[in-house]
Design a protein around this nucleic acid. Structure first.
Lengths: 340, 340
DNA sequence: CTGTTAGCGCGTTCAA
DNA sequence: TTGAACGCGCTAACAG
């Protein structure tokens, strides 16, 4: 060992491998990145030496030298544990892993400020790409992102002017489609319950979709039938009671598991669905199909969105030139079930 | 700019900031890491210059220089999207963020081989700590982990001999406690349904806990009442039917959302719970409390486990010497509800 | 309080 | 096919 004594134990360096294989570090480097440049015999000695000393290449140093970038893609979602965003994260993770790139994941707790801080913290790690669920508000941060000149994908909603690229479904179109579905089924007093302002941008787009559908049908949106509620099953149950009291004959729950909470509350109260009130859900959680009656829901391709977003970054990484701006609409689907 | 022309745009360097503020790079470095060492006036110039050029410190280079480590903690869970593991990931993420450290997250898809590959890929990034949900089997990989000489925390189960540290609940004790609960309620033919072999280690520990409780009560475990099933609501429903047919008067679902699936199936069939059959769940999913009747469940502090695991890494990082081996039992709780 | 020198581990470039 | 020198961006150690 040429290393200084008194040093805490650390990883073996390429140099250590080289010494053991009686070659130079350079040859080890080549053997790892393009084995064809190294003779069979030398290669075998090196491979052995790598195992012997337990060498793990230092991507930190390598990244600094080559691109000043790590083989990491950073992603920011509103919540790590929320199963909807987790599905998207899974899509990213799977696609990236297949190409030897790893995922750096953080969440904003639905706070624009935290998101801003996280962006900076992530950029400091020099990722080779970044995926943002929500649009970044701070103009300084947007500037930093552009300056980073790495591929950026936004996935929370379709946007006309992405920072760089966007992969999503349209919150507006999805809400509009579900409202049309309810109108087509003959419901006249369709209520809309969505999450609180924290996620304004998306909630607002959904509300506009709902209103647009009503307008098309020459119907007036009764303000008493539009409410914002907290997340969670219990909130769904509460919203149900309030909206039925306000005369709703159908409720479109535009977020989280609200619709499931409402469905379970109907069971407890013995309210028949959809006779007394019809229920529709924004996301098709696995549980939505299991309650009685099964819930009509929008199926959003969340996993696929994550996968596609990661693929875009990989493509760019491999030199593919996209004609900017790239905006990919991954669509959605209405799964009509017994609740409407 | 001193940078070579023809170079693709890239981040500003500390040098660029220094030039703009008419100081040396070293002063910029100090202003960032210990502002008290720099005069007020200089500091202001530097702060301004940083904003002007949109400088984001390069942790890649800094990490290489200081510790040969990034400010990243790597974590490997069986599945990114599964809400149970996601809760643990959230705990890690929150605790780390509070200390300016980021999370590198990957999943093994429940495969020991993929986990092994991922460990190597992660170590190559030189994280300052690593959190593993499942115990690493490959002895070569275990060797690499030890050689990395970074804090390692295992969180999937309590173990006698952790690689380094462990934070978890005891799968054995939890299953034993729930089985005792069912015995105390007077059930005589208690069935056990758990997930398939992929997660053997934990499933096996749970099975042993179940068997131990029966033995204590001088009861024989009827092999017909012990089954392994796939994950998902539908599997829970199927298992319910099979086990009731086999004469079970209580079923302990030792994994995933099986118990919820069974509860919903009981509703559909009009089977009264717990009269016809009692149901108990391993994890206290939010939905477990919402179905009718509400499910008795084990409350596992998954978020807290993630948080504590991250904290252990941070402590070690800050020089705290733990008396090895560190094994922290975070316990569990039985939430008795109407289903038993 | 501020600047200079040197080098973290690797890969590019050039020479042998 | 292999090796030596240099530098990626930053910071520890030492000077001034």
């Amino acid at each position: 060992m040429s290393r200084r004594v008194d040093q805490p134990a650390t990883h073996a360096r390429m140099q250590d491998v080289a010494k053991r294989a009686s070659v130079s570090a350079m040859t080890v480097s080549r053997a790892l990145r393009d084995p064809s440049q190294v003779s069979e015999k030398t290669r075998r000695r090196i491979t052995r030496a790598i195992r012997d000393v337990g060498y793990v290449p230092n991507e930190l140093a390598g990244g600094l030298r080559t691109l000043n970038r790590t083989k990491l893609v950073a992603a920011i979602v509103p919540s790590v544990r929320n199963s909807l965003f987790a599905a998207t994260s899974q899509g990213m993770s799977d696609a990236l892993r297949a190409h030897g790139i790893n995922l750096m994941l953080g969440d904003s707790h639905y706070s624009p400020d935290e998101e801003t801080n996280l962006v900076t913290a992530f950029l400091a790690q020099r990722p080779c790409g970044i995926i943002l669920h929500d649009a970044v508000r701070s103009s300084h941060t947007r500037k930093l992102l552009r300056k980073a000149s790495i591929p950026i994908v936004e996935v929370g909603d379709l946007t006309r002017r992405p920072l760089d690229m966007a992969v999503s479904y349209s919150n507006f179109a999805a809400a509009q489609a579900m409202t049309r579905h309810l109108l087509a089924r003959g419901y006249r007093r369709i209520a809309f319950a969505s999450l609180p302002p924290a996620i304004t941008a998306r909630s607002a787009a959904r509300l506009r979709g709902y209103q647009a559908a009503l307008r098309e049908a020459r119907r007036h949106a009764d303000p008493a039938l539009i409410i914002g509620v907290e997340s969670g099953f219990a909130s769904g149950a509460e919203a149900l009671v309030r909206l039925v009291a306000a005369g709703a004959d159908a409720i479109f729950f535009a977020g989280d598991v609200l619709a499931v909470g409402a469905a379970l509350e109907c069971q407890r109260r013995g309210w028949s669905v959809p006779e007394r009130v019809a229920l529709a859900s924004f996301d098709d959680h696995e549980i939505a199909a299991q309650v009685t009656p099964a819930l009509t829901a929008l199926r959003i391709p969340r996993y696929e969105i994550g996968r596609r977003a990661a693929e875009l970054i990989l493509e760019r990484h491999n030199g593919v030139k996209h004609r900017k701006p790239v905006v990919i609409d991954m669509g959605f689907e209405i799964v009509a079930r017994a609740s409407t």
